[in-house]
Design a protein around this nucleic acid. Structure first.
Length: 301
DNA sequence: ATAGGGTTATCC
DNA sequence: GGATAACCCTAT
């Protein structure tokens, strides 16, 4: 077999054959293994060259990853700075419009976002404590005192003992609202506004107030339910704690509901609602369902 | 999205 | 105060 012929194509087979030839009984002790030893040295050199080449490739890749990490860290710091700057602008804006209004009343403590748990090396970081950027420390420490982290805050709205924060998912909204209603805070949160759940009331906004305290939405097509009491999302304003005033069903609405059930069938409240969006303005699919339940119950439908 | 239980407002 | 209607909440 001509090994030189196969070597470039079948490296492994060549090495295997090399060792086989090296240990062949006819070669042992005959001095004929000298050329094989030279081949072995050549192979060893080639392997070392390959190893060196692989190491170089690895070094290049590691350098690329390190550069990416630097870029990501820069982006991270830029984003944090942006959030902080915006918070400051909002704060000043609100103070301008509402002298005496505390940032806590406006819910600004939500800016105390924890860093991502899976971000290595950032566990001790804080949105308002940028240890690696001394130039922004003064600004940050000011913000830190303005919007302290819940863990060390005495503020009733950011304190861990506050029910609003005890319920991270805001699932137990009724209890939360009641707890807030019973509190002595001047900015009570009503039982309805601000805690709409499941998207059912979100399509009919009362007022949406951004974190700067600005009214974003209080549209011109408000129904009886919308903005009826002049309540605001975070309880800024009238501070009414009353439940939504009931809106009686008109005969037209009832007839449309009956027709819709005939057409689409019971349970397809969304379709029925969409088919008569104008007539059912201010109603949700849940309202339709509730009304139909009442009709079934008391009108034996 | 929907169902169903619970709560509250309104009417009598 | 009870009945009813409308609203709210939550599980699926």
């Amino acid at each position: 077999m001509n090994l030189e012929h196969w070597r470039p194509r079948l490296g492994f087979y060549w090495v295997h054959s090399f060792w086989k030839n090296l240990q062949h009984p006819l070669l042992l002790g005959s001095g004929a293994c000298e050329p094989n030893l030279r081949r072995f040295e050549q192979l060893e050199g080639a392997l070392r060259a390959s190893q060196s080449e692989l190491q170089n490739i690895l070094d290049v890749k590691i350098a690329e990853v390190k550069r990416s990490v630097v870029v990501l860290e820069d982006a991270h710091h830029s984003l944090k700075k942006l959030v902080k700057d915006q918070a400051e602008v909002c704060k000043q804006h609100v103070r301008l419009k509402n002298p005496g209004t505390t940032s806590q009343c406006l819910g600004l403590s939500v800016f105390n976002l924890r860093p991502l748990a899976h971000a290595p090396g950032l566990e001790d970081d804080n949105m308002y404590e940028d240890k690696e950027r001394p130039s922004s420390n003064a600004h940050c420490s000011q913000l830190s005192s303005e919007y302290p982290h819940p863990s060390n805050s005495q503020d009733p709205y950011s304190s861990p003992s506050h029910p609003l924060l005890l319920d991270p998912g805001l699932h137990n909204t009724k209890e939360t609202a009641r707890a807030l209603e019973s509190s002595s805070s001047p900015s009570k949160i009503t039982s309805r506004v601000g805690f709409m759940h499941g998207g059912q009331r979100e399509k009919r906004p009362f007022q949406e107030i951004d974190l700067c305290g600005e009214v974003l939405i209080c549209n011109s097509e408000q129904t009886v339910r919308e903005c009826k009491h002049g309540e605001s999302l975070l309880g800024i304003g009238s501070g009414s704690t009353q439940r939504q005033t009931q809106k009686k069903w008109s005969n037209e609405e009832v007839e449309l509901l009956k027709r819709g059930v005939q057409e689409h069938g019971k349970g397809h409240w969304k379709k029925i609602l969409n088919d008569n969006a104008d007539a059912f303005r201010g109603r949700t699919e849940v309202d339709l369902k509730d009304k139909w339940r009442n009709l079934e119950k008391y009108e034996r439908l």
